[in-house]
Amino acid sequence: MTDDLPPGAGATGEPAGVPRAAPAPDAPAPTVGRGGRRRDQAVALAWLVVAWMLLWGDVSWGNLFAGLVVGVAVLLFFPLPPVTFGGRVRPRALLVFAATFVVELISASVHVAAVALHFGYRPRGAIIAVPLRVRTDLNLALTAEVISLVPGTLILDVDRAEGVLYVHLLDVRGPEDIAGSRERVLAVERRIVRAIGSPDEVRRLDIEPVERRNHQ
């Protein structure tokens, strides 16, 4: 009730005609300095060069130079959204990631070759949605790139807001293949995060999101 308020006071107890104090503004979002931007661009350029050389399948000085030229052109003429790197490089986990990637690359290549040489066999494809546990732009980009480099799998779309990868599978013979492919995508994410992720991102690997359960 307002009957007990002093004359000239409003319903809030403040004198009439006196404007309220504006709420304190939110703290400004942290900005990335020039050094941070250069570091992020260097990381992006390095990954573009690696992707270029892997796509050509030949590690040579010529491909390295061409990858640098293409990478610089992409960053200049098609600027990517800022992707900050707040993780930590772990050499042992990075070696595990690299070794596992080579093994999976060889295994998938043999499987695709066997499917291609199997006369009269028509492989059945499938598209699956795989929600990732770490939804940063860097993790989405790296996981999608690694999955696309492995024969037999291809990223069709990325839901950046929800952190979901839509993956096309070449040869699906039953539900167990779909479940196994989903687990392989999550295993790639896990190895990437353990190799270069922050401690908080590593902890997220043990959390199973609701979206993942709903997609199973």
Rank of each mutant, 00 (worst) to 15 (best):
D3H: 08
L5Y: 11
G8T: 06
G10H: 12
T12S: 10
G13W: 04
P19M: 12
P19T: 05
A27Q: 13
P28H: 12
P30Q: 05
T31D: 06
R34N: 03
G35A: 14
G36K: 09
R39D: 00
D40N: 11
Q41C: 02
A42T: 09
V43G: 05
V43K: 13
V43D: 11
L45R: 12
V50P: 06
L54D: 07
L55T: 07
D58E: 14
N63E: 12
L64I: 09
A66H: 02
V69A: 05
V70L: 15
V72Q: 14
V72C: 05
L75I: 09
L75R: 15
L76I: 07
F77N: 00
L80K: 08
V83E: 15
R88I: 14
P91W: 00
A93E: 13
A93Q: 15
T100S: 13
V102F: 10
V103M: 12
L105H: 12
S109L: 01
H111M: 04
V112Y: 03
A113N: 07
A116S: 08
A116V: 11
H118K: 15
P123G: 06
R124G: 02
R124T: 15
G125A: 07
I127L: 12
I128R: 06
V130L: 01
V130W: 05
P131E: 13
L132T: 03
R135H: 04
D137P: 00
D137N: 12
L142A: 09
L142P: 02
S148G: 04
G152V: 07
L154W: 15
L165Y: 14
L165T: 10
H168F: 05
H168G: 00
L170V: 08
D177M: 10
A179S: 11
A179T: 03
S181H: 07
S181R: 12
R182Q: 15
R182C: 01
E183I: 02
L186R: 15
V188E: 06
R190Q: 03
R191T: 04
V193S: 00
A195F: 08
G197N: 05
S198D: 04
E201C: 01
E201D: 04
V202E: 13
V202D: 14
R204G: 03
L205W: 08
D206F: 01
I207T: 10
I207P: 05
P209R: 13
V210F: 03
H215M: 13
